[in-house]
Amino acid sequence: MRPEHGYHFFTGYNSALKGTARALRKNMTRQEKKLWYDYLRNTPEKWYRQRVIDHYIVDFFCYSARLIIELDGAQHFTVDGEEYDSVRTEILEQYRLEVLRFPNSVIDRNFRGICDLLEEKVAERMLCFS
């Protein structure tokens, strides 16, 4: 990793996680499928599903906006889950990435609201990196 203005460049890919990422793409949750098929794959920005970054696999990633979306099930709301997610987010932010986390239930209840929020966030982040 090379420092740039106090941050690290995004280094990309950890090939050791390739098989796991592929399996996760084939077995997405219902909420991940909804977000992918009903919104993300049709946006002008390129989004990746189950993308390997550092030692982690993120649910969705847009390189041009340096934005990560994580959809969280019940396991993320335990003490251990919250601690793990906090450390993970801190590491990902060192690459100048922003992590947005949404509970699965919000995708079910307010899908259009999430899509609107993502449009705003992508536009905001694109201004920062253009």
Rank of each mutant, 00 (worst) to 15 (best):
G113I: 05
S105W: 04
R22Y: 12
G113Q: 06
F102Y: 15
W36K: 00
Y48P: 00
E98L: 06
K33P: 02
E119S: 12
Q31I: 05
P3G: 07
N14A: 11
G113M: 06
V52I: 05
V106C: 00
L92M: 02
E83P: 04
L118E: 07
S86V: 01
T78Q: 02
T29S: 13
Y37Q: 03
L35C: 01
I91W: 03
N104R: 03
W36C: 00
F60T: 11
E45N: 04
L24Y: 02
K26E: 13
D72N: 03
T89H: 10
L100A: 07
H55R: 14
N42E: 11
R41H: 01
G12C: 14
R66I: 09
I91Y: 07
P3S: 11
E119A: 09
S15K: 11
D72E: 06
C128M: 15
Q75D: 09
I91L: 03
V58S: 08
I107P: 01
K26L: 11
S64I: 11
Y39P: 12
E120N: 07
E119L: 11
Q75Y: 05
P3Q: 13
N14F: 12
L40N: 12
N42H: 12
E45T: 04
Y95I: 06
A123T: 12
A21C: 13
S130H: 15
A74G: 03
A23H: 10
L127T: 14
G19I: 07
L97R: 01
L71P: 02
T89I: 02
F10Y: 15
T29I: 03
I114S: 04
L97H: 03
Q31G: 01
I53Y: 00
E120L: 09
Y84C: 00
G113F: 05
T29P: 09
